[in-house]
Protein backbone atom coordinates (compact mmCIF):
# COMPACT_ATOMS: atom_id res chain seq x y z
CA UNK A 1 0.00 0.00 0.00
CA UNK A 2 1.19 3.42 -0.82
CA UNK A 3 0.86 5.15 2.50
CA UNK A 4 2.17 8.46 1.28
CA UNK A 5 -0.69 9.15 -1.09
CA UNK A 6 -3.52 7.59 0.87
CA UNK A 7 -4.03 8.08 4.56
CA UNK A 8 -5.67 5.29 6.53
CA UNK A 9 -8.19 7.52 8.24
CA UNK A 10 -9.26 10.82 6.80
CA UNK A 11 -11.66 13.35 8.23
CA UNK A 12 -12.58 16.10 5.87
CA UNK A 13 -14.66 19.09 6.76
CA UNK A 14 -16.35 17.01 9.42
CA UNK A 15 -19.13 18.70 11.33
CA UNK A 16 -21.79 17.53 13.74
CA UNK A 17 -24.63 19.40 15.35
CA UNK A 18 -27.33 18.33 17.71
CA UNK A 19 -30.19 20.71 17.08
CA UNK A 20 -28.76 24.20 17.27
CA UNK A 21 -25.66 23.15 19.09
CA UNK A 22 -22.67 22.58 16.88
CA UNK A 23 -20.46 20.01 18.56
CA UNK A 24 -17.83 19.56 15.86
CA UNK A 25 -16.84 22.26 13.41
CA UNK A 26 -15.17 21.65 10.04
CA UNK A 27 -12.66 19.19 11.32
CA UNK A 28 -9.86 18.02 9.05
CA UNK A 29 -7.50 15.29 10.12
CA UNK A 30 -5.50 12.49 8.59
CA UNK A 31 -4.17 9.50 10.45
CA UNK A 32 -1.63 7.08 9.02
CA UNK A 33 -1.82 3.35 9.49
CA UNK A 34 -0.34 2.23 12.80
CA UNK A 35 -0.56 5.58 14.51
CA UNK A 36 -1.74 5.94 18.08
CA UNK A 37 -3.70 9.15 18.28
CA UNK A 38 -4.89 10.52 21.58
CA UNK A 39 -7.71 13.02 21.57
CA UNK A 40 -7.82 15.22 24.64
CA UNK A 41 -10.06 18.04 25.68
CA UNK A 42 -12.38 19.20 28.37
CA UNK A 43 -15.63 17.37 28.87
CA UNK A 44 -18.24 18.47 26.42
CA UNK A 45 -15.67 19.50 23.82
CA UNK A 46 -16.97 16.96 21.35
CA UNK A 47 -14.25 14.33 21.62
CA UNK A 48 -16.60 11.47 22.42
CA UNK A 49 -18.91 12.52 19.61
CA UNK A 50 -15.94 12.42 17.26
CA UNK A 51 -15.20 8.87 18.36
CA UNK A 52 -18.80 7.81 17.91
CA UNK A 53 -18.76 9.18 14.38
CA UNK A 54 -15.59 7.24 13.65
CA UNK A 55 -17.28 4.12 14.98
CA UNK A 56 -20.26 4.74 12.71
CA UNK A 57 -22.60 5.14 15.67
CA UNK A 58 -23.43 8.72 14.77
CA UNK A 59 -23.79 10.29 11.35
CA UNK A 60 -21.87 13.48 10.69
CA UNK A 61 -23.97 16.50 9.74
CA UNK A 62 -21.31 17.81 7.36
CA UNK A 63 -18.28 16.39 5.66
CA UNK A 64 -17.20 12.80 5.77
CA UNK A 65 -14.88 10.23 7.27
CA UNK A 66 -12.88 7.97 4.96
CA UNK A 67 -11.34 4.75 6.09
CA UNK A 68 -8.90 3.15 3.68
CA UNK A 69 -10.26 5.47 1.00
CA UNK A 70 -13.88 4.48 1.55
CA UNK A 71 -16.48 6.73 3.11
CA UNK A 72 -17.63 5.43 6.47
CA UNK A 73 -21.35 4.70 6.47
CA UNK A 74 -22.60 3.03 9.58
CA UNK A 75 -20.68 0.36 11.39
CA UNK A 76 -17.61 -1.12 9.83
CA UNK A 77 -16.02 -4.48 10.44
CA UNK A 78 -12.56 -2.97 10.47
CA UNK A 79 -13.44 -0.72 13.37
CA UNK A 80 -14.09 -1.74 16.94
CA UNK A 81 -14.83 0.55 19.82
CA UNK A 82 -14.06 -0.10 23.46
CA UNK A 83 -16.46 1.75 25.72
CA UNK A 84 -15.78 3.64 28.89
CA UNK A 85 -18.03 1.41 30.94
CA UNK A 86 -16.83 -1.82 29.35
CA UNK A 87 -20.34 -2.92 28.49
CA UNK A 88 -19.77 -6.56 29.25
CA UNK A 89 -22.86 -8.72 29.19
CA UNK A 90 -23.43 -9.62 32.83
CA UNK A 91 -25.23 -12.86 31.87
CA UNK A 92 -22.34 -14.28 29.92
CA UNK A 93 -19.21 -15.82 31.36
CA UNK A 94 -16.01 -13.90 30.72
CA UNK A 95 -14.94 -16.19 27.89
CA UNK A 96 -18.33 -15.91 26.20
CA UNK A 97 -18.18 -12.16 26.46
CA UNK A 98 -14.90 -12.19 24.61
CA UNK A 99 -16.29 -14.58 22.02
CA UNK A 100 -19.39 -12.43 21.42
CA UNK A 101 -20.15 -12.20 17.73
CA UNK A 102 -17.71 -14.97 16.78
CA UNK A 103 -19.16 -17.90 14.94
CA UNK A 104 -16.47 -20.43 14.13
CA UNK A 105 -14.96 -22.76 16.69
CA UNK A 106 -11.39 -21.70 15.91
CA UNK A 107 -12.34 -18.13 16.55
CA UNK A 108 -13.68 -19.12 19.92
CA UNK A 109 -10.37 -20.72 20.74
CA UNK A 110 -8.77 -17.48 19.77
CA UNK A 111 -10.99 -15.74 22.29
CA UNK A 112 -9.38 -17.80 25.03
CA UNK A 113 -5.98 -16.98 23.69
CA UNK A 114 -6.78 -13.29 23.69
CA UNK A 115 -7.96 -13.60 27.26
CA UNK A 116 -4.59 -15.09 28.04
CA UNK A 117 -2.89 -12.13 26.42
CA UNK A 118 -4.68 -9.70 28.67
CA UNK A 119 -3.68 -11.89 31.61
CA UNK A 120 -7.09 -13.22 32.54
CA UNK A 121 -7.12 -16.79 31.32
CA UNK A 122 -7.74 -18.00 34.86
CA UNK A 123 -10.98 -15.97 35.07
CA UNK A 124 -12.48 -17.33 31.82
CA UNK A 125 -15.34 -19.11 33.60
CA UNK A 126 -16.30 -16.32 35.98
CA UNK A 127 -19.25 -13.97 35.74
CA UNK A 128 -18.29 -10.38 34.95
CA UNK A 129 -19.92 -9.22 38.20
CA UNK A 130 -17.09 -10.68 40.28
CA UNK A 131 -14.31 -8.96 38.33
CA UNK A 132 -12.69 -5.71 39.40
CA UNK A 133 -13.02 -2.60 37.26
CA UNK A 134 -9.61 -3.08 35.71
CA UNK A 135 -10.27 -6.72 34.93
CA UNK A 136 -13.57 -5.83 33.28
CA UNK A 137 -11.81 -3.37 31.02
CA UNK A 138 -9.21 -5.97 30.15
CA UNK A 139 -11.99 -8.33 29.13
CA UNK A 140 -13.51 -5.55 27.04
CA UNK A 141 -10.12 -4.98 25.42
CA UNK A 142 -9.77 -8.67 24.62
CA UNK A 143 -13.27 -8.68 23.16
CA UNK A 144 -12.38 -5.78 20.87
CA UNK A 145 -9.05 -7.23 19.78
CA UNK A 146 -10.32 -10.71 19.01
CA UNK A 147 -12.02 -9.20 15.96
CA UNK A 148 -8.66 -8.01 14.64
CA UNK A 149 -9.76 -4.43 14.16
CA UNK A 150 -7.65 -2.27 11.92
CA UNK A 151 -8.84 0.74 13.81
CA UNK A 152 -9.40 0.47 17.55
CA UNK A 153 -11.33 3.27 19.18
CA UNK A 154 -10.96 3.72 22.92
CA UNK A 155 -13.55 5.90 24.63
CA UNK A 156 -11.99 6.88 27.95
CA UNK A 157 -11.52 3.20 28.73
CA UNK A 158 -9.56 3.88 31.88
CA UNK A 159 -11.63 6.77 33.19
CA UNK A 160 -13.08 4.85 36.09
CA UNK A 161 -9.93 3.04 37.18
CA UNK A 162 -7.55 3.83 39.99
CA UNK A 163 -4.08 5.21 39.29
CA UNK A 164 -2.16 1.97 39.74
CA UNK A 165 -4.51 -0.06 37.56
CA UNK A 166 -4.25 2.65 34.95
CA UNK A 167 -0.48 2.31 34.75
CA UNK A 168 -0.85 -1.43 34.26
CA UNK A 169 -3.46 -0.89 31.58
CA UNK A 170 -1.24 1.65 29.81
CA UNK A 171 1.46 -0.93 29.50
CA UNK A 172 -0.95 -3.61 28.35
CA UNK A 173 -2.53 -1.40 25.71
CA UNK A 174 0.83 -0.21 24.46
CA UNK A 175 2.22 -3.75 24.22
CA UNK A 176 -0.81 -5.02 22.36
CA UNK A 177 -0.70 -2.03 20.04
CA UNK A 178 2.92 -2.73 19.19
CA UNK A 179 2.25 -6.42 18.70
CA UNK A 180 -0.96 -6.28 16.69
CA UNK A 181 -0.08 -3.14 14.76
CA UNK A 182 -3.55 -1.68 14.71
CA UNK A 183 -4.29 2.00 14.46
CA UNK A 184 -5.71 3.45 17.64
CA UNK A 185 -7.67 6.54 18.56
CA UNK A 186 -7.91 7.11 22.28
CA UNK A 187 -10.23 9.67 23.78
CA UNK A 188 -9.18 10.76 27.23
CA UNK A 189 -9.32 13.70 29.56
CA UNK A 190 -6.03 12.70 31.12
CA UNK A 191 -3.18 14.48 29.36
CA UNK A 192 -0.55 12.31 31.03
CA UNK A 193 -2.27 9.22 29.74
CA UNK A 194 -2.32 10.71 26.26
CA UNK A 195 1.37 11.54 26.35
CA UNK A 196 2.26 8.13 27.80
CA UNK A 197 0.57 6.21 25.00
CA UNK A 198 0.15 8.26 21.86
CA UNK A 199 2.32 9.02 18.89
CA UNK A 200 0.21 12.09 18.35
CA UNK A 201 -1.94 14.17 20.65
CA UNK A 202 -4.87 16.15 19.34
CA UNK A 203 -6.50 18.77 21.48
CA UNK A 204 -10.12 19.57 20.74
CA UNK A 205 -11.55 22.77 22.06
CA UNK A 206 -15.06 23.93 21.34
CA UNK A 207 -15.44 21.50 18.46
CA UNK A 208 -12.22 22.46 16.73
CA UNK A 209 -8.74 21.02 16.64
CA UNK A 210 -6.73 23.40 18.78
CA UNK A 211 -3.48 21.45 18.76
CA UNK A 212 -2.08 18.60 16.71
CA UNK A 213 1.20 17.53 18.16
CA UNK A 214 3.36 14.57 17.23
CA UNK A 215 5.16 12.99 20.15
CA UNK A 216 8.45 11.41 19.27
CA UNK A 217 9.63 10.10 22.62
CA UNK A 218 10.62 6.42 22.58
CA UNK A 219 8.54 3.85 24.47
CA UNK A 220 8.28 3.04 27.31
CA UNK A 221 7.81 6.59 28.37
CA UNK A 222 8.78 7.43 31.90
CA UNK A 223 6.99 10.15 33.76
CA UNK A 224 10.21 11.41 35.33
CA UNK A 225 11.66 12.11 31.91
CA UNK A 226 11.87 15.92 31.63
CA UNK A 227 10.63 15.87 28.06
CA UNK A 228 7.56 13.97 29.17
CA UNK A 229 6.79 16.50 31.86
CA UNK A 230 7.37 19.36 29.47
CA UNK A 231 5.07 17.91 26.83
CA UNK A 232 2.32 17.40 29.36
CA UNK A 233 2.68 20.92 30.71
CA UNK A 234 2.71 22.32 27.21
CA UNK A 235 -0.57 20.63 26.31
CA UNK A 236 -2.15 21.58 29.61
CA UNK A 237 -1.15 25.18 29.03
CA UNK A 238 -2.84 25.05 25.68
CA UNK A 239 -6.06 23.85 27.26
CA UNK A 240 -5.94 26.43 30.03
CA UNK A 241 -4.56 29.17 27.79
CA UNK A 242 -7.48 29.15 25.43
CA UNK A 243 -9.72 29.10 28.40
CA UNK A 244 -8.27 32.25 29.99
CA UNK A 245 -8.31 34.07 26.66
CA UNK A 246 -12.00 33.37 26.43
CA UNK A 247 -12.56 34.72 29.88
CA UNK A 248 -10.73 37.95 29.01
CA UNK A 249 -12.76 38.55 25.88
CA UNK A 250 -15.97 38.01 27.80
Amino acid sequence: MNQGSQAFLELSDLGKSFGNKQVLKQMDLTVEKGEFVAVVGKSGCGKSTLLRILAGLEKPTDGEVRLDGETVKGQNKKVKIMFQDGRLLPWKKVKDNVALGLKKEEEKKEALQMLHQVGLSDRADEWPAVLSGGQKQRVALARALVHHPELLLLDEPLGALDALTRLEMHELIRNLWEEKEFTAVLVTHDVEEAVALATRVILIDDGEIALNQTIKMPFPRKKDNPIFAKTVTNILNHIMGRNSELKLTR
Binding site: F83, L100, R143, H147
Partner: peptide
Protein backbone atom coordinates in the same frame (compact mmCIF):
# COMPACT_ATOMS: atom_id res chain seq x y z
CA UNK B 1 -25.89 0.76 25.53
CA UNK B 2 -25.57 -3.02 25.56
CA UNK B 3 -27.62 -3.25 22.38
CA UNK B 4 -25.40 -0.63 20.78
CA UNK B 5 -22.38 -2.65 21.88
CA UNK B 6 -23.90 -5.78 20.36
CA UNK B 7 -24.33 -4.02 17.04
CA UNK B 8 -20.73 -2.84 17.06
CA UNK B 9 -19.63 -6.40 17.68
Amino acid sequence: SLIEMGRVY
